[in-house]
C-alpha cells in the first residue's frame, strides 16, 4: 500500500511539472524512478519509454508500466490517474483564467520565456535515455556503434521524410533483431 502512495506522490508531482508537454519531465522521471526509488533499471526505463512510442495516443501513457513493475495492476492504475488527473484538473481551471487574460502581453512573455526551458528539458531527456539506450559503456563497442547508428539514422530519416515515426521505431527493432540477434 505504501508503494502505491509513493507512486501517486511521485507521478502527481511530475504531472504538474510537465511544462511544455510530457517529454519535459523525462529526465526528472528517469532520475526519480531509476536512481532514487530503484523502481526500474535504466535499461527498463528506456525500453518502457520506447514501447510508449509504439502505442497510439498521448506518448507518456507508457508511464503506467512503471506502476505495473512496482505494484502490478493496482500500481498501473494508480500511476495513470496520478499522472493525468492533477494536470487535467489544473488545466480545466487555469484555462478559464487564461480566457479572462485574453490579450495580455504577459501571455506572450510566458510562452517565449518558457520555450528555451522546455528545449533544455527535452535535451536532458535525450541524454537521460541516450546514456543507456544509445551508448552504454557496459556493452561492447560494436553494439554501441549500432545503437548510435540506429538513432542517427532515425533522426536523419525523420528530418528528410514524412514517414510515420512509429514505423522508424519498428525498423529499429528489426535492425536490432537481425544485426544483434
Amino acid at each position: 500500500m505504501s508503494k502505491i502512495v509513493e507512486l501517486i506522490n511521485v507521478f502527481a508531482l511530475l504531472s504538474l511539472l510537465a511544462v511544455g508537454g510530457g517529454t519535459a519531465v523525462l529526465p526528472e522521471m528517469e532520475h526519480v524512478t531509476v536512481e532514487r526509488c530503484h523502481w526500474v533499471s535504466d535499461t527498463q526505463f528506456a525500453e518502457i519509454y520506447s514501447l510508449g512510442q509504439l502505442a497510439p495516443g498521448p506518448n507518456m501513457t507508457c508511464v503506467a508500466l512503471i506502476g505495473y513493475e512496482v505494484s502490478g495492476v493496482a500500481g498501473l492504475l494508480a500511476v495513470l490517474v496520478a499522472f493525468f488527473f492533477p494536470a487535467c484538473l489544473l488545466c480545466y481551471f487555469a484555462s478559464k483564467v487564461w480566457d479572462a487574460a485574453e490579450g495580455s502581453p504577459w501571455r506572450d512573455a510566458v510562452q517565449r520565456g518558457m520555450a528555451p526551458i522546455v528545449i533544455g528539458l527535452m535535451l536532458a531527456g535525450c541524454y537521460a535515455l541516450g546514456k543507456t539506450a544509445s551508448y552504454n559503456p557496459a556493452k561492447d563497442w560494436d553494439v554501441n556503434l549500432l545503437t548510435l547508428g540506429i538513432g542517427a539514422a532515425v533522426a536523419v530519416i525523420l528530418s528528410l521524410t514524412r514517414i510515420n515515426p512509429a514505423l522508424t521505431i519498428l525498423s529499429g527493432g528489426a535492425a536490432g533483431f537481425f544485426l544483434l540477434g
Partner: peptide, 9 residues
Amino acid sequence: GVAAAAVGL
C-alpha cells in the same frame, strides 16, 4: 533496437 530508435526520434 527499439530503444535506440526512440532516442533518435
